[in-house]
Design a protein around this nucleic acid. Structure first.
Lengths: 226, 226
DNA sequence: TTGACAAAAATCGTATACGATATTATCATT
DNA sequence: AATGATAATATCGTATACGATTTTTGTCAA
């Protein structure tokens, strides 16, 4: 029979941990950490054996990562870890600026004292972070925290995807450079503007913050390409 | 053996028509035309039998549509055609405005005479369009044409996804209203600003154009919900 | 009649198996 | 020796089959 109702409508979207999700999360983390490098072929049999499952959940995980832009498919010829050109980095940062400034604009009026305190704590944690993987993670948490009160879940999900697409390249020049100090100065200036409710100033700072990262990354990639 | 090279790197991303794609395209079209209504359960066996294939390509097609926001999955309980709340419509249009104004801004300096002529022709075609499905299609082609010269493929793909998420609701109040005439006036004003290279004016018009549609749609959905 | 519990049916998620396509290796021919 | 055709191998894409979870149906007691 065809019931026209959704199966009891929503309050139980949680359930057993799907194998597909576990595989996708694992591969995503490895790509972000740079353990799986660009253009590396991802063979389905190989991954299936490694995870101790069949190819089907592996395929679905790979397609999920394709939707996130982390892997590229060649029909009948397999998948590889996606590579980013400098043009794509430019495009991704342009989109991040467009979407994240929107999020921040809508979030600031709803920021609570608790949010601001959490953000402050995250900045302190970033200052003391040791591993670069940790740095990237905390960095993203800080940004996400400021956007969260906007209550725009789809936008957040897409911004997260854009972020992870550039994150694995970002960590490259984070080590040994003074970029971290500059970034933290910008973070604190943004947070201060948020605290005072100065939307336009905060948005301008965020845009400059992202554009600076974009310029560094594009320059790095174009140098490496030559 | 593990070759570290991509399988002959790219020039052949075309191949046999994947069954998964065919199914996804068909279901997407049916959702857009309103033939598959919101919250309708999409059973895998049923679809597999209908298309004469097994469940696996059906599953992959459904997951692709999930990534596009057209279906919602409930683990171990199946998928349904996604429904949009007025809050989600507001969010989608906010994202469209952010991304499409970016695209237009970057596209205008690269617009050619040929582009402008094509756009003009599309407007004429819209004026004479009979079926509403055709109207929606042409409408999107007009917008896409203006953004194309920006050369931002990822952004275009995401804008397309946002568009199809609201398109199926748009057609509802397009019939029998004077919205079409208003929309065409706005289109022609935008096109004229593009022709004269007046970026800020064109962007402002586009934003107003999208916001007007958003307001109408949100009002419609909230009325229907009550 | 109503509620709770249990059995049955339906649907999903995954493993196994097989055919299709692409890539690599072999060999004949110029 | 180089090149083109052909066979062998590897990998992907899909069908079939089965176990797991969920929903529904049926039964019984209060």
């Amino acid at each position: 029979m065809l019931t026209a109702m959704p199966p009891s409508l929503a309050p139980i979207p949680k359930a057993a941990p799907q194998i597909t999700e576990v595989i996708a999360d694992t591969l995503r983390a490895e790509i972000l950490q740079g353990r799986l490098k660009s253009n590396l072929p991802l063979r389905q049999d190989e991954l299936a054996e490694r995870f101790g499952v069949s190819k089907i959940p592996v395929r679905e995980a790979l397609y999920q990562l394709k939707a996130e832009g982390l892997v590229t498919f060649f029909p009948n010829r397999g998948a590889v870890v996606a590579a980013l050109s400098s043009a794509e980095v430019d495009e991704i940062y342009a989109m991040r600026i467009a979407l994240e400034t929107l999020a921040l604009r809508r979030a600031i009026p709803h920021l609570t004292i608790a949010n601001l305190a959490q953000a402050e704590a995250l900045l302190a944690a970033i200052d003391q972070a040791q591993a670069i993987a940790q740095w990237g993670e905390l960095n993203w948490e800080f940004h996400a925290l400021l956007y969260q009160p906007a209550n725009l879940p789809r936008l957040m999900e897409w911004v997260r995807i854009l972020h992870i697409n550039v994150a694995r390249y970002l960590v490259i020049f984070l080590v040994g450079l003074e970029y971290q100090a500059t970034s933290q100065r910008e973070h604190r200036a943004m947070l201060e503007a948020c605290r005072q409710g100065q939307i336009e100033i905060a948005v301008t700072l965020l845009e400059a913050h992202l554009q600076a990262a974009a310029n560094k990354l594009v320059a790095f990639l174009e140098q490496r390409a030559a």
